[in-house]
């Protein structure tokens, strides 16, 4: 039973990766959005390096957060319209586990590339080099939380008019703690006033909480939406 549950989760995971690979432009769009939003800030604020370095942690984190929020609308909608989401609900395996696999695949295709791309944009934003590892690490810890929490509103707004804006409206207030600690970790590493470890530990704590509860809530949300 156990191995077959893992098998089902793996099947969902692989299917998601394959589907995303076939629609790679969508994945690329999220990354391009991340790059463009970050580029807008020097244009708006001015190219002064000190000033840019000062706002870099916040800008990079907000941009990553908005890019993830944008990608959320795509999370379930295609499976919903073509009907394979109903199949997921009908399967004998716990929906929570299958949702978890789906979210893991989504993170691998959005959060992970965002985190890996971030040092490049950080150079553009004149972030000190010593803050780079913390930036990547904070995004690696933070973006899965964004995906996990964001999946709940994404599931709730399936088939609802104005779904995209509604998802942002619902999810952005919930993102505030992750944003605070993520951006603060990078700022701390850049300024060396405080150690970034405390912030990263708290981000890890959020991740553990989200891993434990979000797939469950997301599964309930899907059941409500497909009732």
């Amino acid at each position: 039973m156990r191995s077959s549950l893992l098998g089902a989760m793996r099947a969902v995971f692989v299917r998601e990766l394959l589907l995303f690979w076939r629609r790679r432009t969508e994945v690329a769009n999220v990354l391009v959005f991340f790059v463009i939003v970050t580029t807008l800030f020097p244009l708006a604020v001015g190219p002064e390096r000190l000033e840019l370095a000062h706002i870099a942690p916040g800008v990079l984190w907000v941009a990553a957060l908005l890019a993830t929020t944008l990608s959320l609308t795509q999370l379930f909608i295609i499976d919903y319209t073509e009907g394979s989401l109903d199949q997921l609900l009908l399967s004998p395996y716990p929906l929570t586990a299958l949702v978890f696999a789906k979210l893991a695949a989504h993170w691998v295709l959005t959060g992970l590339p965002l985190a890996l791309l971030s040092p490049l944009l950080a150079v553009q934003m004149a972030l000190p080099d010593k803050a780079m590892p913390t930036l990547v690490l904070s995004l690696l810890l933070g973006t899965p939380v964004l995906t996990l929490i964001g999946a709940i509103p994404a599931a709730l707004t399936l088939g609802v008019r104005g779904g995209g804006v509604l998802v942002s409206l619902l999810v952005l207030p919930l993102y505030t703690p992750v944003l605070i600690f993520g951006a603060e970790a990078v700022a701390a590493a850049a300024g060396q006033e405080f150690a970034a470890t405390a912030h990263l530990s708290l981000l890890a704590a959020f991740l553990v909480l989200a891993l434990a509860f979000a797939p469950l809530a997301c599964a309930s949300a899907l059941r409500v939406s497909l009732d």
Partner: peptide
């Protein structure tokens, strides 16, 4: 559905 969907968001909130 409105009640149940918003209930989930209220609990998460």
């Amino acid at each position: 559905r409105a009640a149940h969907a918003s209930a989930i968001i209220a609990i998460v909130g």
